[in-house]
């Protein structure tokens, strides 16, 4: 019972403990400027994890987010020249649309989400390769600064990415807490049959969840390509694992229904602190993936609601 009561608070306790631990090893870590720049670096990952939260919140998964971001870096790099600021609209629309496709496949055609999103990810990868001719692309630096410079500058010591992240978090939080969509998604995650029996067209809302996941992955890709001033079909590889870890460590379990976007904020910060701590504690970066893999297993094992799984397949 006590475990049940502690569980919701584990994520932020973990975050505090980890931060304190690194702070003890190297007090410089806790300098505001350092923390802020750390936070600024993690924003693309955070935005991706934010979107992924919606897919996981309803008990699904979106494995296409990484390929989606890859594809968007290519699209952004190519069309920035011709479309200017409108390229952002194109990117988000592409992400939203492809996410909708995943959602359609999952809800209307009963393809499990890990397969449907894997397949959509394959489609994204192909598009990225096709558009880019399988090469790395560069943005025109001047035009990038003119159109998207506001995304990556600093205001005082605060990286501008953080404002973008805060705005998106606020929007997602609003969707989650205050809209019909958020309410229905919660009901789907917590008890889909009951939501259906209440006369709700559950499928429509589930599709939207995948679409939001796609759209936010697209924004993450856009920001990433702006930061790097270019794009390539594999440039964002390595995002998927930390994004899933961020959502699950934050306390949104694979079975959905509890947690939410605020949890993902904490989860992403945990990921950031773990990364930083590896640096400070002298652990080689090559061990990062293995570590995150193990953290992922631990996080799932701790958070998953086994009463919702009749048989574990």
């Amino acid at each position: 019972m006590t475990m049940q009561r502690i569980k919701p608070h584990l994520p932020w306790i973990t975050l505090l403990v980890l931060t304190a631990m690194v702070g003890v090893v190297d007090p410089n870590f806790l300098r505001p400027a350092n923390l802020l720049s750390l936070a600024g670096d993690i924003v693309p990952l955070f935005i991706m994890a934010l979107g992924l939260t919606f897919a996981i919140y309803i008990g699904g998964i979106d494995l296409s987010v990484q390929s989606m971001a890859n594809m968007i870096t290519v699209i952004a790099s190519i069309y920035l020249a011709s479309l200017g600021a409108w390229v952002a609209v194109l990117c988000i629309a592409a992400g939203f649309g492809l996410g909708m496709v995943s959602g359609f496949l999952t809800t209307r055609l009963c393809v499990p989400s890990f397969i449907s999103t894997l397949a959509v990810g394959g489609v994204c990868f192909s598009i990225a390769q096709w558009l880019s001719g399988n090469r790395a692309l560069n943005m025109d630096a001047e035009q990038r600064n003119a159109v998207f410079g506001w995304m990556i500058g600093h205001t005082g010591i605060v990286p501008n990415e953080l404002f973008l992240a805060a705005a998106l978090l606020a929007l997602c939080l609003f969707i989650e807490r205050r809209t019909i969509l958020g309410r229905v998604l919660k009901a789907v995650g917590a008890g889909e049959p009951a939501a259906k029996a209440s006369g709700i067209d559950v499928g429509r809302y589930k599709m939207l969840a995948f679409a939001i996941s796609g759209a936010l992955a697209a924004i993450a890709g856009l920001l990433f390509s702006v930061k790097l001033s270019g794009g390539a079909p594999t440039i964002a590889n390595g995002f998927l694992l930390p994004a899933i870890v961020a959502v699950l460590v934050g306390g949104t379990p694979l079975t959905g229904g509890v947690g939410g976007v605020l949890n993902t904020l904490i989860g992403t910060l945990i990921v950031a602190v773990i990364r930083a701590s590896m640096l400070y504690l002298g652990v080689e970066a090559t061990q990062q993936q293995m570590l995150f893999g193990l953290v992922l297993i631990g996080a799932i094992a701790l958070t998953i609601d086994r009463s919702k799984l009749r048989t574990v397949k």
Binding site: T179, I180, L181, R183, V184, K186, A187, A190, G191, P193, A194, A195, K196, A197, S198, G199, I200, G257, V258
Partner: peptide, 26 residues
């Protein structure tokens, strides 16, 4: 399973079938 959504509170359950009536523009 089909009656109540456990994990949601009383008001969330009561309005689940009539969200349109307790909202404006979503």
């Amino acid at each position: 399973v089909e009656g109540i959504v456990s994990g949601m509170n009383v008001y969330e359950n009561i309005t689940l079938s009539q969200l349109g009536r307790y909202s404006r523009a979503g």
